[in-house]
């Protein structure tokens, strides 16, 4: 089984101050000086894929059960793809050290940040080129936060898409069992074919850390740079796709009255007497 995991590296938005956001809204790229993080949902997807590979290999090594059962998941090949700038390269190197078989980056430098249609075209084209059987990615990612990309990719590939995926496991027989959010509950089922799996609030939320030895062993492995044009996306498409008409800051301020200068017990009493009790008594 060829598994493609797509991920996004974003600035750590929490590191920006309100004044920075005003400058971002005005068109200045204040985020370029902020350290980079993996999109949280993508991070879960990357780790879930590693665990799936480990489990399938373990099952296969166990008693050759996976091979004997004829299940197609006998071997898992992991490939990671990101669209972005050089700041994603350290993350790609980490994935190589963790055992991803191949990693690729489409240099786009933010051009597709608010273009889910084009992002999906790029991912779908790469999935076809690499003959991937299964595609994992986060439910949504910044800065656009559209949540559209998994469904658009699935539509392009003619695949089903299951979103809100929280768990991905190989059974002892090598079959792939997945759990996903459905309404207020969850459902678990056996996957029967190619699909896009959009990962949501998975308990597995942190990517493992490679050893120094693993890093050294994979230091020479390269990142495959794939140009947009190679995937059928041209610069004029990028320009035409931008529907972004403007950004604005959001004012969420309330009264912001600060109670201070007294012992914590007194402050708690003031909070209860002056704010909470009157509100709850008037219900």
């Amino acid at each position: 089984m060829k598994v493609l995991v797509c991920f996004k590296v974003t600035p750590d938005y929490e590191a920006l101050r309100p004044a920075d956001w005003e400058r971002v809204a005005a068109g200045s790229d204040e985020t370029k000086f902020v350290h980079r993080v993996l999109n949280v949902f993508d991070e879960s997807a990357l780790e879930l894929a590693l665990r799936l590979r480990d489990a399938v290999r373990q099952a296969a090594a166990g008693a050759g059960r996976a091979a004997e059962s004829g299940v197609a998941y006998g071997d898992v090949r992991l490939r990671a793809l990101t669209i972005g700038g050089h700041d994603a390269d350290p993350f790609l190197q980490t994935l190589l050290a963790l055992g991803y078989d191949a990693v690729a980056r489409v240099p786009a430098n933010g051009a597709l940040d608010f273009a889910p249609q084009l992002t999906a075209s790029v991912i779908a084209a790469y999935a076809r080129r690499t003959e991937s059987d299964l595609l994992l990615l986060g439910d949504r990612s910044g800065p656009g936060d559209s949540g559209l990309v998994p469904f658009l990719v699935a539509e392009s590939l003619g695949w089903s898409c299951l979103s809100g995926v929280t768990e991905l496991r190989a059974s002892a027989e090598g079959a792939l069992r997945l759990t996903w959010a459905a309404g207020e509950g969850q459902q678990r089922a056996t996957l029967r074919g190619s699909a896009v799996l959009a990962v949501g609030n998975a308990v597995v939320s942190c990517l493992r850390v490679p050893t120094l030895t693993d890093r050294l062993k994979t230091r020479g492995l390269g990142i495959d740079l794939v140009q947009l044009e190679d995937l059928g996306v041209h610069q004029q498409d990028v320009v035409a796709s931008s529907g972004l008409a403007g950004l604005e800051v959001v004012d969420r301020r309330r009264a912001g009255v600060i109670l201070d200068g007294r012992p914590p017990a007194t402050l708690a009493r003031t909070l209860l007497d002056d704010y909470l009790a009157p509100l709850l008594e008037t219900s």
Binding site: Y13, L16, W21, V24, A25, F114, G142, P143, G144, D145, S146, G243, L244, A245, G246, L247, E248, V249, V250
Partner: peptide, 19 residues
């Protein structure tokens, strides 16, 4: 149509023009 939505994890809102 011009639509507004939250972007940047809710730190900003964006206007998108759809044609």
């Amino acid at each position: 149509l011009t639509a507004r939505k939250a972007v940047y994890s809710g730190y900003l809102r964006a206007r998108f023009a759809l044609t």
